[in-house]
Write a protein that binds this DNA or RNA. Structure first.
Lengths: 349, 349
DNA sequence: TTTTAACACGAAAACGTTTTCGTGACATCT
DNA sequence: AGATGTCACGAAAACGTTTTCGTGTTAAAA
């Protein structure tokens, strides 16, 4: 049950000063070869490692970044984390994680808990409740204290900071175009309420695709789900809403859904109503999830490249952190847009 | 771009000493009401927060725990994280995350990176490569430096530390018993090589269940997959191995698989061979994944209560951390066993 | 008036580093 | 021999806290 060894202990043991030990370990030219050898050997023997906390305090730099996400049991977000962790580790940073559970207050508390010196900067995706309340004071306060933020996926234009987003508009547009090319005449959209920024953009993509092909969007083909707390809305209700959609629009032959759950539910309902996929109805979902790959039939998706988003966000943040040291007043914020890919599987022709 | 305000700055501004400010903020009786009010008001105005790093250094306690897992894009592990984060946050701890990617060296590097004072203790699940190499020096070194470790799920008896495991043996046993009760006469097992501790235990459960029902295990009904790197073994090969299993044992009417991927692949192959689930073949998987719930037919599973495991592990670790302060020499290690539940869905009768 | 006690505050140490600066002991150059 | 330089090391400050201890001032007690 020994504690970790410190410079002070080595110094005492070897009967030299703390400074000498420190310099010897960092191979300073100030120290004689003899002493260096002696100190280094001793340090190695006792497996000395500089205490990171002390370094953080001295350098006013923790080499740790915080990531706040709404949910972790989720393929998109866990892939983002994987990306963040990957580049963070490569560039010598640790990653501390906070879950908001889509709750405004947990988001605030989490940020407070970290913004007191524990980390150098944030990577985050805004919770649904925050988006709904449109209360962004915690982001602004954090940034005004000199702590950079990089937002990804769920972003908001009111906040000026670096951002990494997926090309929601074009991704959706291309997906819907695909359906149109595949001869779908009556394409339904299953989306979220407009306060979810990505939902709004995907809806817009849907509309633009129709427009470009001179198809008139019909309001009753658009189902906007109020998922105040996603995944908690019980499946039953979701499915019955979708069933309603199908029943009041018998001619639906294509569905574009903005997330995996909606897409799969649509397929389930369609099957239940005796519709064949992809022959009667074709379905595309905007998702990176695994369910899509393993469902029967497997789902054609718009891939979001989640891991790449995480990597990009981490690079952006660390770049900012390291440049901040050299030059300041570099108040240019970037928004990186990640292109999507259409991954065709069995749910389309 | 102002930095965070410190005690020193407040002291200078209010023309008192640092100690006075500190005491005033902590409501010490030593300080007069007047000064307290003045200091507290000022601190509130400038949104003063004690710097966590400085506190960590002073108290030799970071209030941060590290969690090292083999993979994060995985329902089991992400649920565990959710559990850890939940109780950690409730008890005032942060969570720093490290991914080993099933690699021994990344596991070592990750632990090294954190064991230098950044955290107070570890929660971890051992990587497959480490299990294979049976090289556990990094765990022992870490613990010998006074840093506690709690292992979960993938544990190893060579290491003396707190552990949280799922009741793999009985979980598997009950699942297989269920198949037997459902009149299965020829039950196949799809498992991993034995160096994966949980795979081994689940295999043992399978055998014990058969034994209790006087059924003789047949070697050619047991398929041990060598997933040196799970999920990277391409699906094709996995499926062909399973197909082989079915073809050389036409009478298989039950399958017990030790993870989600194997179970789903078995269902896929069975369907491909014209077998109906659950009428011709019944399938149970040892998994907590979502695929099971959404597959067609949905998969009967042995639930591992991943989130609960995470919560338990965090509680165990924090208990140890906080008791260490009061009483020491409490060298009793606990192993918590989490009971499993059989969640019956459509893949069994 | 002198002693004592309460009060309100400041100085300083400690946590573990790194780094700047100062200095004593030599050796080298005129 | 005196001036100068090099070498090898130590003292101390700084990062931001908390806490122990000491101390000057004032009011109460003797």
């Amino acid at each position: 049950m020994k504690r970790k060894i410190t410079l002070k202990q080595i110094a005492r043991e070897l009967d030299v000063s703390i400074s000498t030990v420190s310099k010897a370990l960092r191979n300073s030219a100030e120290i004689s070869e003899d002493t260096k050898q002696k100190v280094q050997a001793f340090a190695k023997l006792y497996n000395y490692r500089p205490n990171n906390i002390a370094l953080s305090l001295k350098n006013r730099k923790t080499n740790t970044i915080g990531i706040i996400i709404p949910e972790i049991v989720h393929h998109f977000f866990s892939k983002v984390i994987r990306g963040v962790e990957l580049v963070a580790n490569n560039r010598g940073y640790n990653v501390i994680i906070g879950l908001s559970n889509e709750s405004f207050s947990k988001e605030v508390i989490n940020m407070d808990m970290l913004a007191n010196g524990s980390i150098d900067g944030f990577i985050l995706s805004i919770s649904k409740e925050t988006l709904q309340l449109q209360d962004y004071h915690h982001f602004n306060e954090t940034m005004s204290q000199g702590m950079p933020i990089v937002m990804f996926d769920r972003v908001v234009s009111d906040i000026k900071c670096d951002k990494v987003i997926v090309d929601d508009l074009n991704g959706a547009k291309n997906a819907v175009k695909k359906l149109i090319e595949n001869k779908c005449k009556s394409i339904a959209l299953i989306t979220t309420k407009d306060y979810v920024s990505v939902g709004k953009l995907r809806t817009q993509g849907y509309l633009e695709a129709l427009e470009e092909h001179k198809m008139t969007p019909k309001a009753d083909l658009i189902l906007k789900i109020d998922d105040t707390l996603d995944y908690k809305v019980d499946l039953e209700e979701l499915e019955s809403e979708i069933e309603q959609l199908f029943k009041s629009n018998k001619k639906i032959d294509g569905v574009f859904a903005v997330n995996e759950l909606y897409a799969l539910s649509a397929m389930k309902v369609a099957r239940k109503l005796g519709l064949d996929i992809p022959n009667d109805v074709q379905v595309i979902g905007f998702t990176d999830g695994v369910l899509s790959k393993h469902s029967t039939p497997s789902l054609t998706t718009v891939s979001q490249h989640a891991q790449h988003m995480g990597e990009k966000a981490a690079d952006l943040l660390i770049d900012k952190l390291e440049n901040e040291i050299n030059e300041d007043a570099d108040e240019e914020y970037q928004t990186v847009i990640i292109a999507t890919d259409l991954i065709e599987r069995e749910s389309t022709k």
